[in-house]
Design a binder for these strands. Structure first.
Lengths: 255, 255
DNA sequence: GCTGGGAGAGGCTTA
DNA sequence: TAAGCCTTTCCCAGC
């Protein structure tokens, strides 16, 4: 492909906020949060209307290199031409040096985001707030996303005995990090209120060792059982949310 | 673009492990770890030789929908044709229904990964192990990536007084999660050894409230100052790693 | 295969 | 803008 024309197509594509794909032989250098070099080779470059750029090899969903909200510049340099993407905060530079370009496509596309997704943690949270008794009889919601000075608790509730309960909700298997998160909220509340509330980690499952940690910290785990029902016509929705089991580490309370 | 030909190109592209780009009008439905619907519209689909697929709109580096290690199937359905990607564990289905295809490109590409990146945490870790005195005079390395039954500590060392020191290294600004991680290692070691070692969080910076938490937990913070030097010819490297400051919360020790 | 953890994480929401 | 946190996180290394 003729270089002059390639440059022109790229410049116009960027200006018109088209989705640009460039396939060609190029080397890539990145300097910013880290440093990387990609030796010369055939790659697919995608430039989008929101000034994001990504460089793809023929494997992995994730691009080899990328940058969001970049400022682009294109310049010739002998038989090569150089596409540069820059960004501040932090300072980042992505330099793509093309030896040759095989193919450029410029697609006129809206910058919309039409995806409708269901089953995110926020969806489950909203569902739960309608009926916490699924977790435990008599459990009443007090607040959602409550700020505690050291983070934000998903759900704050009150059990049938009037004890405050902090609930951390996860849509997937809980790990150490989830337990730590709950632990952090608990610590902070204890510090502020001078009293230890109950803490419940609510997730589809929990890794065994994370559960050990949870129990050592005198926290509770409850199984979150939900079903995602795809509706091909209207929208995706959640059909069920059912508590299967609550593990209250009674031996700890007794200790 | 003629449908029959489109199908053939796609089938061949997948079989030959080419990098395929398909631009066309399509609707997408995903059912798996979550559920999502993307109404009909122009999109760019990328299929790679490692059987990963991603669907891109004209914004964001991240694809709208994606799947790794998928099994593909293509079939006609009247004036439409349907590209399906499936996966087990967990069961996931991605269904792309094309109303029309404007453009298909099939690029013959190796499945290699040529990126050379420097400045990752592992790089810094290796550098640090050579000389921990940058953090504190007399600090001697004992182990790297040591398993403790509740996770893996980055560096275990011994200070000039013979006290064990656990060091958690982060290449970027430390947050709550980093502090929690160190806290977890400390807890476990205290439980196993019956003695409290020192814990040092080593990072370029730390968020103010994370630092509060750190100090409340009687942990220490040290600034990790490193420079990434891009070498345009050979490889990227790190030129410096210098301790600027160690903040030991003396008032806590005295308390 | 499971576990643990990093990532140039990206991206979103709210204060 | 920064803080906080979720993500169909993705991806890799170790066992």
């Amino acid at each position: 492909m003729e270089q002059r024309q390639a440059l022109e197509t790229i410049r116009n594509g960027i200006l018109s906020k088209n989705l640009l794909t460039i396939f060609g032989d190029c080397a890539v250098e990145y300097v910013g949060r880290a440093t990387s070099i990609l030796p010369s080779g055939k790659r697919l470059i995608i430039i989008k209307g929101d000034n994001s750029i990504s460089i793809h090899q023929n494997r992995l969903v994730k691009p080899t290199n990328y940058m969001v909200k970049s400022r682009f510049s294109v310049q010739e340099k002998g038989n090569q031409f150089i596409l540069t993407a820059k960004k501040d905060k932090p300072i980042e530079t992505l330099t793509i040096t093309f030896d040759s370009v095989d193919d450029i496509n410029s697609y006129d596309l809206e910058l919309t985001d039409d995806l409708r997704l269901a089953g995110s943690e926020r969806d489950l949270n909203d569902l739960l707030m309608q009926d916490l008794s699924m977790i435990e009889p008599g459990l009443k919601p007090l607040n959602q996303q409550q700020e505690f000075g050291k983070g934000i608790a998903d759900i704050v509730a009150e059990d049938k005995n009037g004890n405050p309960v902090v609930i951390e909700l996860k849509r997937r298997e809980a790990d150490y990090a989830c337990v730590s998160q709950l632990q952090r909220y608990m610590r902070q509340i204890a510090k502020l209120k001078g009293k230890n509330p109950r803490g419940i980690l609510l997730a589809p499952s929990i890794r065994p060792k994370a559960r050990e940690m949870l129990e050592e910290l005198n926290l509770e785990f409850a199984v979150l059982d939900f079903v995602l029902k795809p509706s091909s016509v209207e929208k995706a929705c959640i059909t069920g949310l059912q508590k299967k089991q609550t593990t209250i580490t009674e031996h700890w309370h007794k200790k």
